[in-house]
Design a protein around this nucleic acid. Structure first.
Lengths: 342, 342
DNA sequence: GTGTCATCTGTAAACGTTTACGAGAACGTT
DNA sequence: AACGTTCTCGTAAACGTTTACAGATGACAC
């Protein structure tokens, strides 16, 4: 199948009757006489020569690769982020190396140590949990790292995060405005960074609105997935009867809605629903789901740019960006306008 | 931020008072005296030594990287495939380099030529269109390539594809069985490989069922996306009144359903819907959408395994796998059982 | 004809590994 | 004591580039 064996500078040089240095220069557009240029071009064409990326990397001390590590490639939020990051770094001439770390922090630690082997020039990391060991490795890394998500104290890295607590507050305030009284909350696991922030935002928002905190009104799904959401929603509706549910992401929201329908209740008439992330799913659902836009593609773009900036200038001051969430109101939370909204 | 400068074999060797060959041997677990092992270990620890991936690649002639190129990372089908491929190749010790090629064949051609630079050991490619130039490059590649999707004649590469034409036929047959009379079709662009196969399947299935081929009953969305689906569905319903619609993927199906609702019609009572790909979206929709499962994760897994096999044994005979589609029946196509299905 | 300068090109070192080869040591056998 | 084995370890070459340096050539002015 391979038509010819791999050809190198040496082979091209022999065929062109010049030194390898000249070949290298011609290939890189450095000054050379017209005659040498032509002979090298021809020899290279005839041999189908392409310079070897590995050798070049070794010499140059850079790989032109950027590593991206996210918890779950299957999650549409992360998929969208990947897409955006891929776009930005590709335009800057980098390749993207993908790691799906899952929820286990150990995989991330392995990743960090192999990053130090220099297979990439930098890393964009979006960790769900921070263990002590992970923090140690983060501090010890010799290569630039940008974190998507909030950082524990004592780690000075470029990062960009959404204020998801504030996002939940937007949702709660909106529901209060709509006259909802019993606002429940379906969260993901609270031992993750996003889970903790969202819980925090929910409690704070209710308090600020002068609402009682009712333990029954809050359940935690075992994961940020649709299937976990079905179980959580059933548990919630077994133990209480809310007139609104805030969900920690859109998958949980659509699961909640499914459970509500199955129990013969209506959305938004009986129960209003608000999701989070503003993915396509919120828009596709029937009725369309009000959702807090955490600007995931914007965050992804910023993260990529922060990393590119640091690769250019390793001495740049650490930058920490917080992106404001935005509520996108759709039919699932506004009584009486379900049809108008469509 | 970087705590120490990068350390190399030479530095470790100096500190341990041995030769670099000994250090290399110890690091790779090759035989050495107890004394040398201990001195090297200690020196390496003190210096925080980790072997350099690039240098190792150059010497070994392999990168331990596999490239994956798909049209659109944002599409949930591809996201799921990526996830699966990532899982398989990671377990085999490879990293995954991601390329989002978009719909432009030129990006793929660039990718192929840079693949010949040797930044990866092999490639998994899922092209939407085959241009002549792409075929030339595919034939000329020195590195193993596995194609996901069907191949034009004259290209001998490992590949794994779904019989999506047959999938459409399954959908049509199912709808006929359900007593539907006017079965319309919302396809994607027909100048793509999947679009052509699906159109073909639709026409053949109708013919085999002895149904008339009605030009009005078929529209092509400009893309396999939700937004394009809305326009296509509106166009379709403006020009004809089907009692069933087969859609070339789930996004188009959910778009069609949205349009149907907006026009005050019911699913499945007035119009039955069948999608394709059997993504989460089909399951989440309300009502849940019957969908043809093209086994994308299975195809992805097979593709990854084919590539791993070829990397082990470059001489292995070319393998071409066709995966049979399967119809997953849900509420959107079965009259009167909408509630039962939930 | 000599000196200065610019321009082009080849030699060789370097990037950080792995590994073939051979030298030497340790040890047992005769 | 001489010899063969076995084991350990260092020397050096190799992987395919880039690039500092110096040598060669020619042009030009004096």
């Amino acid at each position: 199948m391979p038509p010819t064996k791999k050809s190198t500078l040496v082979l091209v040089a022999e065929r062109a009757g010049v030194s390898i240095a000249s070949v290298s220069r011609v290939m890189n557009g450095l000054p050379a006489s017209q005659q040498v240029i032509e002979r090298v071009r021809q020899a290279a064409d005839e041999l189908g020569y392409v310079p070897d990326a590995t050798a070049r990397s070794l010499k140059a001390g850079k790989t032109d690769q950027i590593a991206l590590a996210v918890a779950d490639v299957g999650n549409p939020v992360y998929a969208g982020m990947m897409h955006e990051i891929s776009r930005v770094v590709t335009k800057a001439g980098y390749r993207l190396v993908l790691s799906s770390t899952g929820i286990d922090p150990h995989v991330q630690i392995d990743l960090l140590s192999s990053l130090n082997r220099g297979f990439a020039d930098g890393l964009i990391l979006s960790p769900l949990r921070f263990t002590e060991e992970l923090c140690v490795q983060l501090r010890a890394s010799r290569l630039p790292i940008v974190i998507i998500g909030s950082l524990p104290a004592g780690i000075e890295l470029d990062n960009v995060r959404a204020d998801s607590g504030r996002g939940i507050a937007l949702a709660v305030d909106h529901l209060v405005e709509q006259g909802r009284q019993r606002i429940a909350f379906i969260n993901g696991p609270v031992d993750t960074a996003p889970g903790a922030a969202r819980l925090n935002g929910y409690l704070r928002a209710l308090t600020e609105q002068g609402r009682p905190l009712n333990a029954d009104a809050q359940v935690n799904a075992s994961d940020f997935t649709y299937r976990a959401g079905l179980k959580a929603a059933n548990a919630l509706l077994d133990q209480t009867t809310p007139d609104a549910i805030v969900c920690a992401n859109d998958l949980l929201a659509v699961a909640a809605m499914k459970v509500i329908f199955k129990r013969g209740l209506r959305v938004p008439d009986d129960i209003a629903i608000v999701g989070m992330d503003d993915t396509d799913i919120a828009d596709l659902a029937q009725p369309a789901i009000t959702s807090v836009d955490l600007r995931s593609t914007k965050r992804a773009r910023m993260a990529a740019k922060l990393l590119l900036r640091r690769l250019e200038n390793p001495q740049a001051p650490v930058e920490q960006v917080v992106i404001e969430p935005k509520l996108v109101v759709r039919a699932s939370s506004v009584s009486g306008c379900a049809e108008a909204e469509l």
